[in-house]
Structure formats: structure tokens, C-alpha cells
Amino acid sequence: MKKLILSAAVLALTAGLAMAESHTTVRLATEGAYPPYNFINDKGEVDGFERELGDELCKRAELTCTWSTNEWDSIIPNLVSGNYDVIIAGMSITEERSQVISFSEPYTQPDPSAFMTKAGAGDVMSGTIAAQSGTIQAAYVTADMPGATLLEFATADESVAAVKNGEADAVLADKATLVPIVEADSELAISGDEVLIGGGVGLGMRQSDTELKAKFDAAIESMKADGSLNALITKWLPGAATF
């Protein structure tokens, strides 16, 4: 019996060996709830700016990539613990995050963040501001808006809903995310000044994965060089600056 258990254990341990030899698959993780960067389409698949971008980058870097989704809150812990290899989720490059993970070259210009309120609400910059937790916007409200109260939500959609039902006075989020929402809903409006926070959006990778980072950096550079990245930005991100 003991022998049986032991050999079963050895079998389980070694079963994967042969397959692992051809390890070239890179697992990409996104949130799937931040249009137009990434969202789940009607077919239930990951779609959006980063879906097209990620597929193209993998093609140029000659990598086989698979997509997975993960909650925004735990997206960095699951990367460093090795559940996937790359975060591609509209994540702005910041000092704080760079201490934990390493970022690729930015693939967008620093995207201005904007306030969205109910139409005609006027200036409400000192009221209750909704933002997605763990974002640069949430950090900004806490650190740089002394008169405002931060109200955090797990997803961007929930923070928008908070403005609509009056729980918050305004939501602070990436402008590219807010513009399509305002266009579709006459009750909402962009108001106040835009704020520039973050250093552009990049891929997040483990700090030890230097080889992977080099490959993706090269792919991003080549997309910047031939203008295909700009074409993608114009297609997906309304009003965002190109390279």
C-alpha cells in the first residue's frame, strides 16, 4: 500500500515533466471590467484595447499567450505568487507599484484622469469622490484633495453607479473610461479640470522576469516605431494622446 501511494505521488509529480519542456506559454491577466481598456464582450471573451494590443505584442515577441481574468484587488499578489506572468489591465506605472513589480515601457501616454458628475452639478471637488480601490485615482483623492472624502469601490462600474444614485458627488477615473459613459448617458457629465497622474500604462511583470520584460519592451518599441500602436490608441481610447 505504501509503495502504491509513493509511486502514485511520484507519477503525479513527474506527469507534467515532458509537457513542461516546451514551456513557452505566457499567461496574461486582465481585469475584464475596465472598458475600453479591457472588458468581457457579449461572447464572454476578453476584448478591448488591451486584448488587441496584447495579441499583437505576443505575435511580435513570438510568444504563445493565453488570457485569464483576475480581480483588480488581488491582481498584483497573484502575479508575484506566479499564477500568471503578465498584468495587462490599464495599470498606470507608479513609484509605489514599481517597488513590487516591474513595468514594461509605457504603451499609452499618461492618460489624464477626469471627474464625472451628474449633469449640471457644478463644482463638487470638495464633496464625496468615488474611485476604484487600489488605483492611482484613489491615491490622488486621499493625498491631494484635502477637502474631499474618498469612497472606494471594487470596480469602476460600481463607482460610476455611486454617482448615479447620489451616494457620491463625483467619480475620478481615467478619462478614456468615462467619455463613452457620458456619451451614452445624458444625466452625466465630465466636469472640473482634468488631472494628470501616473506615468502612462504599462505591462506589469515579476521583477525577476527580466528576459520577458526585454521581449515585451522590444515589441512595444516596434509597435511605436511603425505607428500601429498609435492606430490602436486612436481606435480604442477616445481623446487619448498618441506617441
Binding site: 478591448g48 453607479a161 448617458d185
Partner: peptide, 8 residues
């Protein structure tokens, strides 16, 4: 969650 016409 609310869905805008651009993406669905």
C-alpha cells in the same frame, strides 16, 4: 453593471 453601446 451598466453597459454603454460602444462595447456591446
Amino acid at each position: 453593471g451598466s453597459k454603454t453601446p460602444n462595447y456591446t
